[in-house]
Write a protein that binds this DNA or RNA. Sequence first.
DNA 1: CCAAGGGGTTACCGCGGGTAACAGCGTCGC
DNA 2: GCGACGCTGTTACCCGCGGTAACCCCTTGG
Lengths: 210, 210
Amino acid sequence: MNPDRAGDAVAQRAVRREELLDAADRVICRDGPAASMAQIAAEAGITKPILYRHFGDKGGLYVALTERYTGRLLVELRTALDSGQDRRDRVERTVRAYLGSIDADREVYRFLTRSDEGLPAHSHVLSFRRRLAGLLADGIAVELGVPASRASAWAHGIVGMVESAGDWWLESRTLTREELVTELSDLLFGAYAGAGSPSGTGPGPSLPLG
Amino acid sequence: MNPDRAGDAVAQRAVRREELLDAADRVICRDGPAASMAQIAAEAGITKPILYRHFGDKGGLYVALTERYTGRLLVELRTALDSGQDRRDRVERTVRAYLGSIDADREVYRFLTRSDEGLPAHSHVLSFRRRLAGLLADGIAVELGVPASRASAWAHGIVGMVESAGDWWLESRTLTREELVTELSDLLFGAYAGAGSPSGTGPGPSLPLG
DNA sequence: CCAAGGGGTTACCGCGGGTAACAGCGTCGC
DNA sequence: GCGACGCTGTTACCCGCGGTAACCCCTTGG
């Protein structure tokens, strides 16, 4: 076609790749995370072997998609983590950002959390969790001056806490997003320790459970 | 063979079912959670259609396995939740029990946590999480006198926190189990709130600042 | 002796991941 | 100009796995 210069070949390829990922994105947003390669190819207006030439196998495509999604999410969370005036504020902003993201597109969320074991993409999701937890752990270690082992354990715990609560929230919807942000932040900030806690209702009788 | 009486037929069937589940258990423990029906059948010394006669489809088999596994785990966690002298003690016992269980058989753990979306077993795993979180939420609501919405949010968060930290722990092994129990309990009991105020009950494990 | 029925098998279908082989087409070297 | 190359695209296929239909054989009971 155009007298494109030499180096453009690789750029062209990259562009195509993004287009294919766009197609996969559309299919997954429309039909859920169990999309087949043929479906994705059809959505892109081509056939399977092309997908395989670009991504190797289904795992490769899913890894690429996972990178795209987690990249966006990580940026949002990072900025939230870096903003705010004090620790409490930062925590609330970050939790809010996470809940907002997973709420914005549930199919993508399902794609990320329920991706098949076996597919390499899954290990990539894990690595995203690790990166996120690593960010958190660094922040905690610096901010609180606790040893790395403690910071890591806490970071992974916190990530799972928000993830699991978010999962439940998406399905039950018994709280507003802002309420959940408050609940989780309270939990993190020691509301569970003492019975009488901030922002909540209530006295604090700590009766032992039988 | 033996002149077994009439009602034994159904009992016999139940026994057989358990044997088949045993076989599936063995395969999954040996080869991981991606076992095929033919593999499981071979392990049981039979062929596929028999499995299908007993469990309907792969989902049915996996649901049965999931029930078996989660049943055991739920019993352990329930007793841990009901034991102990104070809240801190109960939390530690429960976290310890959970970590011990997932450590005892990692393939089973992977089977439970990474079971395929799509397969009905996955929703069964989710319902296990919900049951567990429900138990926790009840305990929290009673013990702390907080409203149900707060108790539920916290419960799901706590379940996810322990699960995620446990996941990380299984792979990294940078802590002993007992250390992780302490870290998570500290986190729950407000150690994150103030840098220098660790746990709830008594002196507790002081921050080994390092 | 002959049905009934349940445990067991083989042989097959459909579908999805993955691949080989081939077809058009623009570019490069001679 | 012309063949060699490389890239995009295709069709048609293989294989493994979930799931099933049809059949086999042995026991039970009238």
